[in-house]
Nucleic acid binder design. Sequence first.
DNA 1: GCGACAG
DNA 2: ATCTTGTCGC
Length: 232
Amino acid sequence: MAPVDLASWPRTEDAALAEQRRLRPLVEPRGAAPAPGSLVAGVDVAYDDERNTVAAAAVLLDLGTLEVIEESTAVGPIAFPYLPGLLAFRELPAVIDALAGLRQRPELVVCDGYGLAHPRRLGLASHLGVLTGLRTLGVAKTPFGFDHQDPAPERGAWSPLLDRDSGEEVGRALRTREGVKPVFVSVGHRIGLTEAVSCVLALTPRYRLPETTRHADSLCRRTLAESLAAHS
DNA sequence: GCGACAG
DNA sequence: ATCTTGTCGC
C-alpha cells in the first residue's frame, strides 16, 4: 500500500474540496460482504493537539471468531484542522500508515465515522476506500446532519438515514444492542448498504460499537500515551 | 446572517 | 477528539 506523501496532501479547505470532487466518482457503492472467516481491520485515531501529534491504530480481526490476529500503529503530525465534512484529511494519513504496517491485507476496513453519509458523499470511509482500493464501511456514533426515526428496541432493528434535502437513503440507524442508542452505518467502498449492516451486526455480538472499533480505539490511545512519555 | 456540525 | 470520579448494573 502506497504511503501518503504529506508534501502533496491538501492543506487548504479549497484544495480539500477539490480533492473530494475528484475522488467522489470513483466510489463503488455496491459489493458483497466478506466471507465469515475473512480478516477485518478496525482503524481509529487519537490526538494530542498540544504536540500536533496523531496516533493511529489498525487491528486485524477474524470476522468469524472476532479473535485479534494482528496490530499495527503509526504516529505522525496532524495533517489538517478539524472541519466538519473534511475529517478524512485530518485522519487518513496516519490511518493509511497504520494499515500499511499490517502484514496481511484485510478484506474489509471498519472506520469510525461516515462513508457515503456525507454532505458531498465522500466521508472518510469512502475516501479511504478509493485511496487504497480496500473494501470499507463507516460506523458513526452521532447522526451528523441526517434525519432518521428511532429504530425498534431489539438488536438488529434499523431505520433509514435520510438526506434532508433529497430524501435519499445515505445509511442506516442500526440497533446493535437492545435498548441502547443506535449506531449509524454507511457504505464506504466496494460494499452494499445491506451487506455493510450485516457485517456490523457480526462485529457487535455484545457491545454497541464493533469489536474492530473498540480494539483500534484502545490501541491508538495507548500508542499516543506511550509516544507522549517517550518524548518527555 | 445564524446555527449546526462525523472525529 | 479531549477535559474528567465515582458509581450503578450485568
